[in-house]
Each structure stands twice: as C-alpha cells, then as structure tokens.
Design a protein around this nucleic acid. Sequence first.
DNA 1: ATATAATTGAGATTGAGTCGCAATTACATT
DNA 2: AATGTAATTGCGACTCAATCTCAATTATAT
Lengths: 145, 145
Amino acid sequence: MPEAEKRFTKYLCEHQYKLTPQRKVILQAAREIKGHFNADKLYDESSTLDKSVSRASVYRTIPLLVEAGLIMETMRSQSKTSYENVFKGLYHDHLICATCGKIIEFRNDELMRLQNKICKPFNFKPTEHMTAIKGYCKKCQSKKN
Amino acid sequence: MPEAEKRFTKYLCEHQYKLTPQRKVILQAAREIKGHFNADKLYDESSTLDKSVSRASVYRTIPLLVEAGLIMETMRSQSKTSYENVFKGLYHDHLICATCGKIIEFRNDELMRLQNKICKPFNFKPTEHMTAIKGYCKKCQSKKN
DNA sequence: ATATAATTGAGATTGAGTCGCAATTACATT
DNA sequence: AATGTAATTGCGACTCAATCTCAATTATAT
Ligand SMILES: [Mn+2]
Ligand SMILES: [Mn+2]
Ligand SMILES: [Zn+2]
Ligand SMILES: [Zn+2]
C-alpha cells in the first residue's frame, strides 16, 4: 500500500471515518495529478478512474485530504480554490507575478520553522501555511521600461 | 482634502474614471472602518453615510480602491473576501482558525526580512507579502475533545 | 448475520460576486 | 450656460463554486 494511502487510512480510522471505494479513487486521482488543481479537475480525474464517483463526494473528500496532510490549499484564482499534492518533504510556497501571472515555486525550511514558531505564543495549532509573495518577475521588470 | 481622497482622485483621473459621489462615500466608509471588512460590511457602512449607494457600486469600487493602493485584500475566510485599509507602516499577517473563523494578527519582522531574501535568487521584485496560517485557535482545540 | 452510524449520488439550494440595461451624470468642449 | 458623450448608476436577474437534503446504500463492529 502506498505511503499516501496508508496515511489516509490512518487518518480516517482515527476520526471514525470509513475507507470507502470513492475516497480511495479520489485520493488516487489527486496523487496522479501533477501540479495545481481545483475541485473540478479532481472530479474529472476521479471520474476517469471510476465514473460513478460524484461531484459531491469530491467536494466532501477534499477537506479530508487537506486534514490528513495529503493535499493543501495553495491559492484562489479565477474564483476557484486551487490545491496541490503534498509529497513528503515537498512543501513549498509561491511567488506570483502581478503582470504575467507567472508562478515561481520555492521551498524554504527557515520560513516553515519561523511560521511554526510564530504560532506558539498564541497557542495556535497550525495546519497549513500559505505564503504568497506578489511582485514582478525578471521578465516583467525589464519590460516595464 | 485628506491624503487618501487625494490619492483616489489622482488614480481615477489617470485612468479616465469619474469621481462620483458614490465613490467618495465608499472611500470614506472604507477609511472609517477599523480592522477587516468584507463587501457586505463596506456596503452597510456606505449605506449609513448615504443610503442611495448600491451594493453593485460597492462591488465595482472595491477593485478601484485596491488598484489605488488604499485597501488591500487580506484573506478569504468563511467564503468571503476580506479587505483592510492600507496605512503606511502597519504591515502584519494573519492566523486564521478553520473552525470559528477567528483571526489573530501578528507582526514579525524576521518573516518580512526572510521573504525579501527569498526573492533575490529569482530576481523577483516583491511588492506584497501575504502569509496566512490556517489551523485551530486555543478555544477550538479544547472544544475538539 | 445483524445493527447502526457513516456515506453515497442526485439534484436542489445557497450566496458571494457579476452582468445587462435603461436612466442618469461627470466632465470636456463649445 | 448649453451640449455631447462616454462613464456610471441602481436594480434585478444571473452565474456558478460550494454546500446541503434525503432516501438508499454500505463499511465496520459486535
Ligand atoms: Mn505549487
Ligand atoms: Mn489584519
Ligand atoms: Zn511576469
Ligand atoms: Zn477557533
């Protein structure tokens, strides 16, 4: 059993949620998608694997996958919420160019450590960090002249 | 004329937009709100000042205020977009409780410095940072048991 | 096998945000 | 001051991502 499925199973069990075929399919679909995806995309991919999976189940499963630490909400664009897979040790954040929309991914361990540290004095238990830095990419800076 | 209104006037003029009574009222309402607000809240405050201002005009004016640098989008919580006034030198970020929606503001200079540092190797010129940490506030953690 | 609480798909509903339109208005030009 | 015109307005209808309802089904413990 792949690591992700193991983790999901554990999460479901710990919360008295059931491991259903639909949830397995949706997890698998999520894992197979490279890069960012939204609910619709996840529904499409899930349908390809098993066309009996409903849109409602996809919407219902997304928060479980987030809670289990398998996917994360990354951003909202075009009024849709975007997610992406969390692969072990592959947390990252985003630089977003305000002009061309280019997205640069980066990973910075110090940033993650700092974010956890910030929560402590508030007794706040973090589940997701989202850092988005907006600005201008190299190309768009030179175009500006 | 207050600084904010001057800036808004300049922005509108530069883009061939008109300075209408409605836009003045909405700007004033935005300025008078302390802390975070969403479109509905801004509509309520605007209505108090001038009850002829419509919800549509509020929605249409928000992007202008953002573009003019007078307010900024801070986060999305409980499926509503939140804004707050941009006052010079009051940079901060947010902890957001996934259960009750509570928002804790914090300011961390090290985080700011780190974010700037991160951009350099990408030749990325940052204009805004947005860090949102989602999780559970103290109260909601204990309720969970 | 049985009990039971969780989950499902289908379709209805919600609600933040957008849009179309005819009437109005800001503002530049005479 | 009067005119022209493109921008803006309020209203209400619309969109559509996300949530909810509910009867039927199903995963799991006993
Ligand atoms: Mn990414
Ligand atoms: Mn704030
Ligand atoms: Zn760019
Ligand atoms: Zn809370």
